[in-house]
């Protein structure tokens, strides 16, 4: 009886969330995959099972290729940029700066803003007008005599998505900084001193002692940024709406469901987004589980 008393209250406490997650997360995921494997291409038909046909035929569509390419460019620039900038900021903080608390708050603040608000501001900053028509950043460059820096930002056909990653980097690098700062602080001072006594130069201390310690932090940051990046929707929609020039899978999914009225196609794109995030997350979970077992 006393044993039951120990675990039952706990179970009762979590039961609602277990049920809610089972229904609203895994149930819906399953329902989505089932829908993706039917031919329900409008809202009224019931849809027959067609296997993986939708998953294959999506690759024949030019728009899908474009949106996948955009997602890859965006992810590469955003994840890379946020990691490097976040690391750099953390590194400078760690070197002991006056008023560190203030700087930390300033760098973390953008994270408190929603992507929608960021998008609205950066849409103006990244306006593509130049010279007489310039506003935002182009106006700044024009005024400073740095005319050559003016560019069409996210309206550039090849590298527009790299520009689109700038607001995302701006928003998330403070968060990455906080992660790295915690990582830096986790390196025992004795280890660094031991390395110095052994004749390491300062950069060698970082290369051989501090960086290896940061590996788990880097991995966590990578996962967090990666899954945000692959699902990005709000930022894109608030900067440019649903235009092909900045199309990504999540926006394409929205168009397929609400404009084309093609549930099966939307579900297929959603399934691909989930799968691409899984590719990121599952290795991390495995790695994490192993590490926990080891310790």
């Amino acid at each position: 009886m006393s044993r039951v008393r120990r675990w039952l209250p706990g179970l009762l406490l979590v039961t609602p969330s277990i049920i809610a997650i089972a229904v609203f997360v895994y149930g819906m995921l399953g329902w989505n995959f089932r829908l993706a494997m039917t031919d329900q291409h409008d809202e009224i038909s019931t849809g027959e099972f067609v296997g993986l046909e939708n998953f294959v035929s999506l690759w024949d569509q030019e728009r899908w290729g474009i949106s996948v390419r955009h997602a890859i460019v965006f992810t590469a620039v955003f994840v890379g940029g946020a990691l490097i900038l976040g690391w750099l900021l953390a590194f400078l903080m760690e070197k002991g700066i006056r008023g560190e608390g203030g700087f930390r708050t300033i760098y973390l603040f953008p994270m408190a803003i929603s992507f929608v608000a960021t998008g609205v501001v950066w849409r103006w900053l990244m306006n593509s007008g130049q010279d007489d028509q310039a506003v935002g950043l182009n106006r700044l460059f024009d005024g400073l005599g740095l005319d050559f820096l003016q560019n069409s930002w996210f309206r550039d056909q090849d590298w527009g998505m790299a520009a689109m990653a700038i607001p995302a980097i701006w928003q998330m690098s403070g968060y990455v900084m906080a992660l790295f700062l915690a990582g830096f602080r986790g390196v025992p001072e004795e280890l660094r001193e031991a390395a110095r006594v052994d004749g390491c130069r300062e950069w060698q201390v970082y290369r051989y002692v501090v960086l290896p310690f940061l590996r788990p932090v880097t991995l966590s940051a990578l996962i967090i940024l990666g899954h945000i990046s692959l699902k990005v929707f709000d930022l894109i929609v608030s900067v440019s709406g649903k235009q092909i020039i900045t199309d990504v899978p999540a926006v394409f999914m929205w168009v397929a469901v609400f404009d084309s009225h093609d549930p099966a196609k939307g579900a297929t794109i959603a399934a691909y987004i989930v799968l691409s995030v899984t590719v990121f997350v599952v290795p991390y979970l495995i790695w994490n589980a192993r590490r926990e077992r080891r310790s």
């Binding site: 030019e62 474009i66 092909i244 168009v255 404009d259 084309s260 093609d262």
Partner: peptide, 17 residues
């Protein structure tokens, strides 16, 4: 209708590229 219009919009978007 909506699906048709969306398909045309998509074609125009691709034309812009």
């Amino acid at each position: 209708n909506d699906p048709w219009k969306t398909a045309i919009t998509e074609a125009v978007g691709l034309f812009l590229q």
